Simulated assay, not measured.
Amino acid sequence: MTTVFLTLLPLLALALDLLWGDPARLPHPVRGLGLVADRLEIWGRRLMPGGLFFWGGLSTLILAGGAAALAHDLSRLPWVGWLVALYLAWSGLALRGLLDSGRAVARQLEKGDLPGARVTLSGLVSRETAHLDADGVRRALAETVSENLNDAFVAPFFWLCLLGPGGLWFHKTVSTLDSMWGYRDERYERLGKFPARLDDLLAYIPARITALVMILTGALMDLDWRAAKAHVAAAASESESPNAGWPMSAAAWLCGARVGGPAIYFGRTKDKPWIGPEGGFWDGDKLETLFQLCLLTAALTALFLFLGLGLLRLFI
């Protein structure tokens, strides 16, 4: 596989994602990782019930390292390595899937199908949705779409540009384990602490790149980028996550509507800080603005990362 192909791989993978979305009907690496993670959890609770933090850390490093090594080696197979690399890169990005799912919820709300919107939203968020009114659904949708712009696209694209398919799947594995184990409750607090912190580390730079490019994109779209620039850092610092608050706060100030507030997780209410202009509510037009903002932000971020990181591969 040539260096030129590896350099162009991120852009080719993005093109496939935008054209066809996530290859859900094909064997997907994330499903395989999920099955292995389920088995590791069972083994850990059976073999080391008092050492779940150690088991979670060891499992994370072994599984992520193994996924990265396998992706790297398969991408260099004779004759078919380029095709495997392209599939691994494509299946590691989820930009179109994120936006399609977000628009599906928005369409259901526009049709007055609040129960359907709650059900569809529940597939995108970990909070409980059955009690949400239309405003609550829109706010939760805006929050998850803006946050996952980094998690589903920018961070994996960053590692793909920097380290190729192996780097992408190291990050993707850690992110998958964080989504499965990274809950602060009695069952997962110890098991999921290591992958949660490692995921924070891997997404630290991409989250800030996402917010920065989002503000730049907002200026191009004639949104209130000055307010976003003035408030994003302070608002992001109020978030419980070291990364999620950056794209969320940028989106909230650019679109003129708030995210955060009370949310129910696993039967318990969490009072999350409000982020965004006071009195700003989401409606269908603002959600569509958010979807367009995320798409253009992704395109600009891909261009910047490709030029800054991808082309670097030609010279090292």
Rank of each mutant, 00 (worst) to 15 (best):
V232Y: 05
E110A: 15
L311W: 13
T129V: 03
P165Q: 10
V105P: 01
K229A: 15
L300F: 09
I215V: 15
P195E: 03
E189Q: 15
S175Y: 00
P23H: 10
L160W: 08
A230I: 01
R96K: 14
A196K: 07
G308H: 01
V174L: 04
W82D: 13
V232R: 08
G123T: 01
L296Y: 12
T2I: 09
V174E: 01
V119P: 00
L311I: 02
T60I: 02
L160R: 08
V154T: 11
A68L: 08
S101W: 05
A302W: 03
F153L: 07
L63N: 01
G166C: 13
R31W: 06
R197D: 09
G182H: 04
R76T: 09
T217M: 04
D185C: 03
W246Y: 14
T120Q: 07
A230F: 01
T144S: 13
L309S: 01
L141Y: 10
E238Y: 10
A37E: 05
G50V: 04
P29Q: 07
G284K: 14
D178V: 06
G34K: 04
A227V: 09
W282G: 09
L124V: 01
W274C: 04
L14M: 12
M48P: 00
P115T: 00
L9A: 11
G66L: 08
L88I: 09
Y265V: 02
I62Q: 03
L287S: 10
H28K: 12
V36H: 05
L287W: 14
F170R: 05
E238I: 08
R184T: 14
P242Q: 07
G51P: 07
P206A: 02
C294G: 01
G123L: 00
L121T: 05
L114Q: 05
R313W: 08
W90A: 06
G97M: 07
A227C: 11
H171L: 13
R313I: 06
R226P: 02
T289D: 12
G81W: 01
D224N: 14
W55Q: 03
R313P: 06
D151W: 08
L6R: 12
R184Q: 14
A89I: 11
L162G: 06
G116I: 07
G276K: 05
K229P: 04
A235H: 13
S101E: 15
D133T: 07
A130F: 15
D38V: 11
L109C: 05
L254A: 01
R138L: 14
P78W: 00
I316C: 13
L124R: 04
P277W: 10
D199L: 02
V84I: 14
